[in-house]
């Protein structure tokens, strides 16, 4: 998920208030909608992104660091072991920092490519692709089935 959980909940609540409730007929339906707002506000106070979701992303970064280390690349910028914190904000910050440094590594690789052996450059490319592939597959496997036809058409 690319938006923060608090902002998603705030947006859902605002949408219910301004776009949905004014168009609902019936006291019971409106009451149910206010019930959804109330529960969303409760969730906002207690929920956060899953440490298990972020943990897999960090595990992918650790795997990349190990692969790069075996190729003689300085990997101090990427965590070599998973952090012991379970605070999602700490894990999210580590993941984002890791991804930023992976991008910096790509820039370095681009500059150094002429000085590297063909095999080393290919192995570095492969390690980076394995990392990106693992991250993207994990994102896709933890995403709901898209509902764009319903969103644009207003019907199920």
């Amino acid at each position: 998920m690319n938006n923060s959980l608090p902002r998603l909940i705030d947006g859902m609540v605002a949408t219910l208030r301004s776009e949905i409730i004014p168009h609902l007929d019936g006291e019971f339906a409106r009451g149910q909608a206010f019930g959804v707002i109330y529960m969303l506000n409760n969730i906002r106070l207690r929920a956060d992104w899953s440490p298990a979701f972020l943990g897999e992303q960090l595990a992918a970064l650790v795997e990349l660091a190990v692969s790069l280390g075996s190729l003689g690349v300085d990997t101090k910028f990427i965590p070599e072991t998973a952090p012991d914190s379970s605070d999602p904000r700490v894990l999210e910050a580590l993941r984002d920092e890791g991804d930023q440094r992976v991008c910096a590594l790509m820039d370095w690789l681009e500059q150094q490519r002429a000085q590297l052996s063909v095999d080393t450059a290919a192995a570095l490319d492969a390690a980076l692709f394995r990392y990106m592939n693992r991250q993207l597959k994990w994102e896709l496997s933890t995403s709901a089935k898209p509902m764009f036809a319903e969103i644009s058409g207003g019907a199920e």
Partner: peptide, 21 residues
């Protein structure tokens, strides 16, 4: 756009979920 609160349009974060695909 959605994160900054410029819109509450739920199509925005829904579009955001399509980044990984």
């Amino acid at each position: 756009c959605f994160e900054e609160g410029r819109f509450n349009d739920m199509r925005m974060p829904a579009m955001g979920t399509q980044l990984a695909p």
